[in-house]
Design a binder for these strands. Sequence first.
RNA 1: GGACGGUUAGCUCAGUUGGUUAGAGCAUCUGCUUUACACGCAGAGGGCCGCAGGUUCGAGUCCUGCACUGUCCACCA
Length: 883
Amino acid sequence: MDKAYNPKNHEDEIYKQWEDSDYFNPDKLPDADKREPYSIMMPPPNVTGVLHLGHALENSIMDIEVRYQRMRGKRALLIPGTDHAAVATQARVEKNLQAAGMVNPRAVLGRDGLVEKIREYAEESKSTILNQIRKMGTSADWSRLAYTFDETRSRAVNELFRRMYDDGLIYRGYRVVNWSVKGQSTCSDDELVSVERPAKLYTFKYAADFPITISSTRPETKLGDTAVAVHPQDSRYLEYIGQKFTVDVGAAQPLTITIIADAGVDPEFGTGALGVTPAHSAIDFEMYQKNLEIGIIPVIGKDGRMLETAGTAYADLTVEEAREKFVAWLRAEGLMIGEEEITQNVGTSDRFGDVVEALPMEQWFVAVNKEIPGRGKTLKQFMTEAVTTGHNGDPKQKVTITPDRFADIYAHWIENLRDWCISRQIWWGHRIPVWYRGKEMFYSETMPEGEGWEQDPDTLDTWFSSAAWTFSTLGWPEKTKDLADFHPSNWMQMGHEILFFWMARMILMTTYALDTIPFRDVYIHGILRDKNGQKFSKSLGNGIDPLDVIAQYGTDALRLSVIKGIAPGNDARFYEEKVADARNFVNKLWNVARFVLTSQQDDLTHLSGNSTASIFSQSEMSERGIGAKESSYSIADQWIQSRAAWIVQEVTQDLEKYQFSQAAEKIYAFLWHDFADWYIEITKFLPNQPLTRKILETILKLAHPFIPFVTEQIWREMGYTELLMVADWPQQQWKHDETIEQQFSAIQDMVIQIRNLRAQYNISYQKTFPMIGAAEGEAAMIIQRLGRVEIQPQGEGTMHIMNAQYNFIVNMAELIDVEKEQQRLGTEIADLEKYIASIEKKLDNEQFVANAPAAVVEQEREKLAQAQQKLSAKQDELRNIQV
RNA sequence: GGACGGUUAGCUCAGUUGGUUAGAGCAUCUGCUUUACACGCAGAGGGCCGCAGGUUCGAGUCCUGCACUGUCCACCA
């Protein structure tokens, strides 16, 4: 074995061995039929490039869980996969093409051409990502690899669409949606990122004779107003409700403004009256739906420019130009009443970055508030039930969220959920399986019979396919064996930022299509930030490539570093020192193993034999009546057994509760501070310990899910031919014994006392234990002196130790050559006194003080103070010796 | 505006139903060529657990208020 563990020499080879063993496939595990199924579906990374540290965290957590379950004897399945990530991928590729000089890729390449380009990019990205997942040591079943856009998954998507369409849950509707001008596509509500920006709030009237004043930050949209809404109890406006006014603001047609009442209007805000623009505001559109007679006039087009309806003066202007012009007109006409600088939140497109425009258009929606035929409930109810009472009120069908506070956040979000807009005007994704011919509309995955059919040009929201992930990966809609065995899945993990995007949609889709929950437990992890607490992002340039970290520190170190020091749901920071610490731990484990494996044949008895004899004679020991009893285990053995028993229990419990960080820290402390620092050191002087190998094996098993490579390698070095990966999780073969631990703790205290004594009297190791030279030898001495004590439950053993402690320290004191020390200190003190006297004499000399430079005098004073301090320290030391 | 976090050693963070003297890693300081490991060994220093109240025999932990900070949500035109 090498002196230091070098991950590069082992990782690739070990991963290959795991893959070759086929054990990643749960069906190939030993006695697979007898095992209880356990499944995790990997959150599929987007095929938009390469993996980042967040993925490293997810992979680590996921793999810890699946490796643990596999060792627990489960038929453990981790399905790997990737996500075609519709908008994100298309946006990325278009950006790349534009950077390469293609101004408008959609126009140049056409639909098929662009889709092909994106497909090429996605395939390349996919293979990069899958390799990275392998590099992370992820024990995923590659034979079940899935992709949201592959054939099986596409079939699932189409089937879901068909069923929901037939059930009337998917409908086509004319609505105001979020439109990204830059991306030329809709965005769902939760794909918006709200950005705060300064704006001007204009207060004005449509016309001089119009009775009500309104306010807006978007005056140009007022060219499409059809109503003014006021609160139904607002006395200022009561008389106008129901009246119609005709105003000419320069639009193509004079506007007919109806005064309507709406309880949603806040009478306290602004003028208490709201200009209603049904076509360019989601709220206004809702008012319009309640008062269809007011009409709707779109004035902004998909290109972000004003339409003809806005009037000849405004048509074709950008909204900004139109606003300027309209504001100028209002001022000129004397209609402008006030202008106020405010800050407002605007929604921007997550993927394209531009401020979205509210536009009315035909889109596809999933109705969340509509009763599902034959089920008596709405999708929203299903989504709520799954995390509260359990699906259909069955507590066994309940999704448990760790940490549980996210359940409340989720429930709150569901309450405010509106119909889900699922159509996108981009080309990369599952195309909507609906065909049109004139006014005919027909559901079909392939072109229907007959002439003149055209498929809907839109594609589906990428989350539509992600929503089916837990069962599409298992072959649904076919009734596969996998589906029967592995669904609902046991566990899912995700970052809190996609709780709504993804978890909510998975619950929606699974409860609807399979009448069951998608997973039993959800573990929410925080996001990794950089050393300064900032998010990792491309624009900040603070990204860290996991592969670089692996190259430098090894995969095990990376895995350990991302999960140590984190708590479920909380963000954590990632920095190099953490990885270095983890690497050190891996190396420590390696060296402990190296010692255990190489020292077995070594005979160290001569060391302990001689040194013991020099201090304690056999007769002396029996004289004091200590250590007469024989046991096959020393107290050190009994102690390490007890510690091991405790650690097995604790780590198991922590893993059951998804306390990964705590489990890792306990293993860390046990290996390093119990096993290596004490037990191993003691065995150097009390050899023939039968336990070292067994304890090491236990540690390897406990640590394997966290640091799979180094543990597997050591396992091989130990001579095992079967893989550690499929070894049994440690059984409880020892007993946790509080009494033993207290007694051993007393020994540890004793050793520390002796160390302190030694430091105080300045005694070297050589002086105390010429044959040993290691502090832990002292502990070995004590243990040996006690003999192999039979520990009494009443604590008799403790008594022995206390006796021994007393006697031992007395013996220590006897070892000190007091006279010699006194002599040495005596001369030192005498010298110091002389030195002090000479300085004092100098300072007493008036001529010196008067004539010498001030700095020199000060220097002398300092010297004197230092010497006096030193003297008093030496005197104290001498006094202590005499005691 | 609403909701939810965070505030514990110089730094980064643990601390599971309230319970001995509040922990870890890193950093700092001291001493070690000690044949498993300097990616190491042995020690040391460093904490009004954000502030103010309350409940309790007992509070880092529970309750109330406040401050600072972060995240998410929201149709104040």
